[in-house]
Design a protein around this nucleic acid. Structure first.
Lengths: 218, 218
DNA sequence: TCACATTTATTGTTCAACAATCCGCGCCGA
DNA sequence: TCGGCGCGGATTGTTGAACAATAAATGTGA
């Protein structure tokens, strides 16, 4: 945000690895060998270790002493916790929003992106756009700390999404919901928008938990 | 939390450095040389760099590419943001608390510790205990993510406290307030406790901002 | 089959080296 | 005198290799 310079190499590698994880290329539980991943990423082991620390603190990786790191496996407890925190943050953010806040443009963009991704059959993209939409909601608070914290939650949540096969059912139904929510917001009906969001979060959480339960039992 | 084994060396160094920063031994704005600090901490430069990444992400250090790290200097904007987030988290935490939650014991301990520290004239200790008290409030939510996030806010806030000379005036008046708040909580008056907390946060924020303004103008 | 020693692979940490970048200093010309 | 210019020197960024420490895998004997 305050740094316009190119992000340092470890940050860059962290971003790439983050994409691989949330993109589902690296499955939860999978062990990551320092040597092979360093060779794969074309960086030294030392640099990669810095990256590991970063992502571990973000909750994307799990570190066991002397046994290396592996992709974190989301638990039901984690999902419940994340949705609880989302409610705590997003609902007041929306309820107290100024109706002409710049972040609204980002939310509007996100809705468009989601539509485009749906047309293209890119369900992964729909998920990304949806998360962008909610990041916009948090941006309404103008709080850098909340924004950063939420980004972390988002990353962790996408880990869980990756486990669910039919991502289609997960995000697609909410595009129209988001559109509607956005309309209410620009119309100044923050209260109605917040109520809408509350029911969205309930439905989304249930969907994730159900899909998760189906998976955990095999 | 989940790790009962001894924390790895970088974590340990990070903790030590964190203490030095929040303890005021390292002043905000002070530049930290990798070479001398590595020698001082008796660790290699590589290990220290991992630590730097950690604390940078926590907001305690500022990293400028090719110019190394220095202790972060808190800004008024940061303080405002932190208190806003604190309200967002702490008020609902208290309002929705179960009156016999285990975290209440921690809060009670914190009050006692604060008293003991005040007797001993250890104002630094009063500050620590006060923060422990508020960490207890957050613990009422049973949310590991909120707890971790709050710990981060706390560390950053103590950075600002360190700049203020008379830490005495900063925390001491709130010992009785906390005690009172605790009584209301165990009595089941969560609403009253929350209102109490709200006024506490207002006063505390004002005190910090005023002291901060006095300092910034020289 | 089980318990135990041994080997092997991986991680944890250090060290030394070199490239890249920034900072201060002296030089030079106007 | 003053302001640009280039040049070292110091610090950071990154790498590679080395070795110790630990855990997993393997083999051995009863």
């Amino acid at each position: 945000m305050s740094d316009t310079t190119t992000p340092s190499l470890p940050e860059e590698i962290a971003a790439r690895l983050r994409d691989r994880i949330t993109g589902g290329i690296l499955r939860p539980g999978q062990h990551l060998s320092e040597a092979v991943l360093a060779a794969d990423m074309q960086v030294s082991r030392n640099t990669l270790r810095e990256v590991f620390r970063l992502l571990t603190r973000e909750g994307l990786l799990t570190h066991l002493p002397n046994r290396g790191v592996s992709v974190a496996v989301p638990s039901m407890g984690a999902i419940l916790d994340i949705y609880r925190v989302r409610r705590l943050i997003e609902l007041p953010a929306l309820a107290n929003a100024r109706p002409r806040h710049p972040a609204i443009a980002r939310m509007s963009e996100a809705v468009d992106d989601a539509r485009a991704a749906r047309e293209a059959g890119d369900w992964q993209g729909v998920g990304s756009a949806n998360m962008q939409f909610h990041a916009g909601i948090v941006a309404l608070t103008d709080s850098p700390r909340l924004t950063a914290f939420f980004a972390q939650l988002t990353a962790e949540l996408r880990l869980a999404f990756g486990l669910i096969d039919d991502a289609q059912e997960l995000h697609a139904p909410f595009i129209e919901t988001n559109q509607d929510l956005l309309h209410r917001l620009v119309a100044g009906d923050t209260q109605g928008a917040a109520e809408h969001l509350a029911s969205y979060l309930d439905r989304s959480e249930r969907l994730v938990l159900e899909a998760f339960a189906r998976i955990e039992m095999r």
